[in-house]
Simulated assay, not measured.
Amino acid sequence: MPRIAAPTNAAQREQTQRKVLDAFGELLFSHGLPGLTMTDVARAAGVGRTAVYNYFADIEQLLVAFALDETGRFVTDLKDKLAGIQNPVDRLSLYVRAQLMDLTRRHLPPGPAMRSVLSNESFAKLGVHVGELNTILEDILRDGMDQHYLPVADVEGLVQLIHGSLTASASRRKIESPDEARVAAAVRFIQAGVGASFGADGRPVTYS
């Protein structure tokens, strides 16, 4: 019988599933989705191909599980960090930085590419977390407008433009984190795009 490395069968299953998801993420990062097979994932995870199928029926199901797992963890961490910041312009800066770090680290296929390889049902599952990220950004922008740090504008339109800019600005090289100058430029660009103003001390200021 195979030796159980974890203290319980449930823990062993969780460890194996984590290995599979991590291996899939690495392959997605280094090789991309086209041509990726369950055999590739099993080999990278150091488990048998049958073991992968015990958790995921196919690459589509694995992609959805990976995306939900990664995005869910990202959303939770982002909310925790945003909770400690009051100024909406500073919160926008943190949001932009966090998104660029996450996009650089994970390299999930962009929305249109995901839609092209997923069924409507699977793609709809991803919309839950995507919608949650949209809501977070919408709240930041609305707070900025309500507190007169940002001029009143179409919030939903700004969200689409910001997310499009972030996707375009994310590094496509395999690095641990994006270049700080690149991140700072993206932050300034987006802050300027939504109409934020700053005083001589570099702090956000309200409109008179």
Score class of each variant (00 low, 15 high):
29 F>N: 07
44 A>K: 15
193 G>M: 06
145 M>S: 09
127 G>M: 11
92 L>P: 02
101 M>F: 11
39 T>Q: 11
161 L>A: 14
201 D>M: 12
7 P>T: 10
76 T>K: 09
36 L>N: 04
18 R>D: 15
140 I>Q: 07
156 E>T: 15
44 A>Q: 15
143 D>T: 04
13 R>L: 11
4 I>M: 13
82 L>F: 04
195 G>D: 09
39 T>P: 00
117 V>I: 09
32 G>T: 03
94 L>M: 10
9 N>Q: 11
150 L>H: 10
204 P>F: 09
172 R>W: 07
86 Q>A: 15
46 G>Q: 06
134 N>Y: 11
170 A>P: 05
187 V>R: 00
111 G>A: 14
6 A>H: 04
48 G>A: 14
28 L>V: 04
60 E>D: 15
25 G>R: 06
198 F>W: 09
157 G>K: 09
178 P>E: 13
92 L>Q: 07
193 G>I: 03
172 R>L: 14
14 E>Y: 00
119 S>N: 02
29 F>V: 06
15 Q>P: 00
207 Y>G: 05
42 A>R: 02
73 R>V: 01
97 R>D: 01
48 G>V: 01
3 R>I: 12
145 M>E: 14
72 G>A: 06
135 T>S: 10
177 S>D: 08
8 T>F: 05
196 A>T: 06
82 L>G: 07
104 T>M: 03
63 L>G: 05
130 V>S: 07
184 A>H: 07
85 I>L: 06
179 D>V: 13
98 A>P: 01
137 L>A: 02
134 N>R: 10
35 G>T: 07
109 P>S: 04
191 Q>P: 00
115 R>L: 09
2 P>T: 12
81 K>Y: 01
125 K>N: 01
16 T>R: 14
163 H>G: 12
26 E>Q: 12
59 I>D: 00
124 A>D: 15
143 D>N: 12
157 G>F: 07
29 F>A: 06
41 V>H: 04
136 I>S: 02
208 S>G: 13
1 M>A: 12
99 Q>N: 13
62 L>V: 06
89 V>W: 01
128 V>R: 11
205 V>F: 02
192 A>V: 00
29 F>C: 02
149 Y>W: 09
173 R>W: 09
64 V>K: 09
42 A>M: 02
81 K>H: 14
2 P>F: 07
111 G>Q: 08
203 R>A: 14
47 V>C: 11
13 R>H: 08
138 E>D: 06
63 L>K: 03
37 T>A: 00
123 F>W: 12
135 T>M: 07
25 G>E: 05
71 T>R: 10
136 I>G: 00
129 H>L: 12
180 E>T: 15
144 G>Y: 04
158 L>V: 01
156 E>Y: 03
134 N>I: 00
206 T>W: 00
129 H>P: 00
38 M>Q: 11
195 G>F: 08
176 E>P: 01
147 Q>H: 10
186 A>N: 02
204 P>A: 08
90 D>Y: 00
146 D>H: 08
34 P>A: 02
138 E>T: 14
98 A>G: 13
73 R>Q: 13
81 K>D: 10
200 A>Q: 14
189 F>S: 09
100 L>K: 08
108 L>P: 07
41 V>I: 09
25 G>T: 09
145 M>L: 03
188 R>C: 01
66 F>L: 06
25 G>M: 05
44 A>R: 15
55 Y>G: 01
